[in-house]
Amino acid sequence: MSFASPADSPLGRHTTYADQYDPSLLFPIPRAPQRAQLGITGQPGFFGADLWTAFELSWLNMRGKPQVAIAHIVVPCESTHIIESKSFKLYLGSFSGTRIADPDEVRRRLQADVSAALWQGGPLQASAGVRLIAPDDFDREAVGELDGLNLDRLDIECDHYDAPAPEHLSAAFDEQPVEETLTSRLLKSNCPVTGQPDWGSVQIRYTGPQIDQAGLLRYIVSFRNHSDFHEHCVERMFTDLWQRCRPFKLSVYARYTRRGGLDINPWRTSHPGPAPAPVRTARQ
């Protein structure tokens, strides 16, 4: 499997699309450099996962008839690497002309290949989770919005767009703590390689000093022209909120709109627990 910087990935390059199964197409990118910018070294001080949905998965059965499925893939946040999304799309495309006996074999290959890429030769501490949705169950795939109090209702003035601005974050440390869930559909960042926009919604659950909502919304908007991968944006949000607002518990969950048949939905939490249900938003 390939390993280099994001600039060496297939993202933004002319590509030949393979139709024969090829796990070498997966392009891992280390998490450590971006985490180091946040002061995170070694094991991070949060739990969570990156929740992927693959809408363009197809292969041939042993008689050559095309089969289709939707794949839900759970990438543990403690993995040493993420997988660049275009390489993931190319890898999934390589199944399209490959004869495979049954869907469970597809699932096993996906789990083994993705897990190997995430740890890049290091000890496999946690495997990727893979679940396939058969066509007969497509109509059970839920669509809904993130629950919580919508920050977008606030009529505020915004003027920071080029980089995350944690100075907007504050909390009422001299008042009684609260437990609340806040959401926004105004999250946007840019791909660090191509500059293409990445659109998303974000949900923040916390217990602790009440966070100033207007400042939080300005902070979310400040990502608008920031260039970084989805996973790193959410980790930056979690770290800034944890340091600036000092909650007792915190969860940050973002759902980004799909590109190339893939959506990536990072979730980071201060306390271990079940991952959010894979309910896609209307924009996804």
Rank of each mutant, 00 (worst) to 15 (best):
Pro23Val: 10
Ser24Thr: 15
Ser24Asn: 12
Ser24Glu: 12
Pro28Asp: 11
Pro28Cys: 04
Pro28Ala: 11
Ile29Cys: 12
Ile29Val: 15
Pro30Cys: 02
Pro30His: 10
Pro30Gly: 03
Arg31Lys: 06
Arg31Phe: 03
Arg31Ser: 01
Arg31His: 07
Arg31Met: 03
Ala32Cys: 00
Ala32Ile: 00
Pro33Asn: 10
Gln34Leu: 10
Gln34Pro: 02
Arg35Gly: 06
Arg35Glu: 11
Ala36Gln: 11
Ala36Asn: 09
Gln37Phe: 01
Gln37Lys: 15
Gln37His: 05
Gln37Ser: 08
Leu38Thr: 13
Leu38Asn: 12
Gly39Asn: 06
Gly39His: 08
Gly39Ile: 04
Ile40His: 00
Thr41Cys: 08
Thr41Glu: 14
Thr41Gly: 04
Gly42Thr: 07
Gly42His: 06
Gly42Phe: 08
Gly42Trp: 10
Gly42Arg: 06
Gly42Lys: 05
Gly42Leu: 10
Gln43Gly: 06
Gln43Asn: 13
Pro44Met: 05
Pro44Cys: 05
Phe46Leu: 10
Phe46Val: 05
Phe47Leu: 02
Phe47Cys: 07
Phe47Gln: 04
Phe47Ile: 00
Gly48Lys: 01
Gly48His: 02
Gly48Arg: 00
Gly48Thr: 01
Ala49Pro: 06
Ala49Tyr: 08
Asp50Trp: 01
Leu51Met: 12
Leu51Lys: 02
Leu51Ile: 15
Trp52Phe: 15
Thr53Trp: 12
Thr53Lys: 15
Thr53Glu: 15
Ala54Gly: 08
Glu56Leu: 01
Glu56Ala: 02
Leu57Trp: 11
Leu57Asp: 09
Leu57Gly: 09
Leu57Ala: 09
Ser58Glu: 11
Ser58Asp: 07
Trp59Gly: 04
Leu60Gly: 02
Leu60Phe: 03
Asn61Gly: 00
Met62Pro: 00
Met62Val: 00
Met62Cys: 00
Arg63Gly: 02
Arg63Trp: 02
Arg63Pro: 00
Arg63Tyr: 05
Arg63Thr: 04
Gly64Arg: 02
Gly64Phe: 08
Gly64Ser: 03
Gly64Gln: 02
Lys65Arg: 14
Lys65Glu: 12
Lys65Ala: 13
Gln67Asp: 05
Gln67Val: 06
Val68Lys: 14
Val68Ala: 14
Val68Trp: 12
Val68Gln: 14
Ala69Cys: 04
Ile70Lys: 11
Ile70Glu: 01
Ala71Met: 04
Ala71Asp: 06
His72Arg: 07
His72Gly: 02
His72Phe: 08
His72Ser: 01
His72Tyr: 09
His72Gln: 07
Ile73Ser: 08
Ile73Gly: 05
Ile73Cys: 06
Ile73Asp: 02
Ile73Arg: 05
Ile73Glu: 04
Val74Tyr: 09
Val75Met: 14
Val75Asn: 13
Pro76Tyr: 03
Cys77Arg: 07
Cys77Ala: 15
Glu78Asp: 13
Glu78Ser: 12
Glu78Leu: 10
Glu78Trp: 04
